[in-house]
């Protein structure tokens, strides 16, 4: 496959996944805002700031807006053209990617991404009220599901499919590490109402990554920080856990290489393999005893490395870099 197309597939998937994660986070904050008014920050800090933090875009935000209020934060997260991680920009990039490889992807997939783009654009001129946001978030989630539905049902399991998987799962793993990192830091800062706070806090995190129901099925309605951490980081079956995502990455990689890793792909193989092993054999108690933040930061860094080795191995983005 053309490396340019492989690159486009990978980034299309990453961007669709990123838009979905953005939307899920907004959804959870909306719920928290309504149900738990006591957690509203009376220092005037917006409830949306962790979200901006998750995308590591505070400095960009501050260069664009004078202050962090609901409207500016929401605009920034959803439809801002200048934020490369806003939902609109992610979807628009995914559409651009899809467009450069019409014919390599099912035409239904192109039509979906194209329609997706126009649907998000409709929010550009709307005032971002709670009910508008709910509609937007539902729409994004629904498009993401359709996206995967079409890929699952209509895309041949060749290299193209594997690059889509790699993009999706790498984005998902990295974003999960970041979400858990940001929300666990939030906990340390607050000491009052410890128990109630923890319960609501961690169930919101679970919800944000669609993990609440499956977590409860596994552990019952006891929302314990260490179990939540274990579930989101190390669970072998939950499809958004970091471990699961990285195992999928490894599987996609080995499928492309037909199970036989040649010299040019060795570095990537070793990197991915080590990372998977680390998560497969890790114990949550051990992680929590050490520096939890450092652990998560390390995962993010490793994911970044995987992304870079992926690019050199398959010449992704090589042409633009020159």
């Amino acid at each position: 496959m053309l490396s340019r197309v492989a690159d486009a597939l990978y980034w299309m998937a990453r961007n669709v996944e990123r838009a979905e994660n953005d939307a899920r986070l907004i959804a959870v904050q909306l719920v928290r805002q309504l149900e738990h008014a006591e957690f509203r920050d009376d220092m005037g800090h917006s409830l949306w700031s962790p979200l901006i933090h998750i995308n590591a875009s505070e400095s960009l935000f501050l260069s664009l807006y004078e202050r962090m209020d609901d409207q500016s934060s929401l605009e920034f997260l959803t439809v801002a053209d200048k934020n490369p991680n806003s939902i609109l920009r992610c979807v628009s990039t995914a559409r651009q990617n899809a467009r450069t490889m019409l014919g390599m992807i099912p035409s239904e997939l192109w039509e979906l991404v194209n329609t997706y783009y126009y649907s998000v654009r409709e929010y550009e001129n709307e005032t971002l009220r709670t009910e508008t946001l709910h509609r937007l978030v539902d729409m994004v989630k629904s498009f993401s599901l359709q996206f995967w539905g079409i890929i699952d049902a209509a895309m041949s399991r060749g290299d193209a499919y594997q690059f889509v998987r790699m993009g999706t799962f790498l984005e998902r793993a990295q974003k999960m590490a970041r979400i858990v990192d940001v929300y666990s830091q939030g906990v340390e800062e607050r000491q009052t109402h410890q128990q109630a706070f923890e319960y609501h806090h961690w169930s919101a995190v679970l919800q944000s990554v669609s993990a609440h129901e499956s977590y409860v099925l596994k552990h019952g309605a006891r929302i314990l920080p260490e179990r939540v951490g274990e579930y989101l980081l190390l669970d072998p079956l939950f499809p958004r856990s970091i471990r699961y995502c990285l195992e999928q990455m490894l599987d996609a990689f080995l499928t492309i290489e037909h199970g036989e890793v040649k010299s040019y792909a060795r570095t990537l193989h070793v990197q991915l393999g080590k990372l998977c092993a680390k998560l497969q054999y890790a114990e949550i108690e051990e992680i929590l005893q050490q520096d939890f933040h450092a652990f998560l930061a390390n995962i993010q860094w490793e994911c970044n490395q995987v992304g870079q080795h992926l690019a050199t191995t398959y010449y992704l983005g090589a042409m633009d870099a020159e």
């Binding site: 496959m1 053309l2 019409l102």
Partner: peptide, 25 residues
């Protein structure tokens, strides 16, 4: 798409020793 051939841009192609190649993964 309909012919089942690769859609390439100039930057996907390179000439080495008077032979044209496309850059694949």
């Amino acid at each position: 798409q309909q012919m089942g051939i690769e859609l390439v841009e100039g930057r996907d192609l390179v000439v080495v020793d008077r032979v044209v190649y496309m850059k694949t993964s």
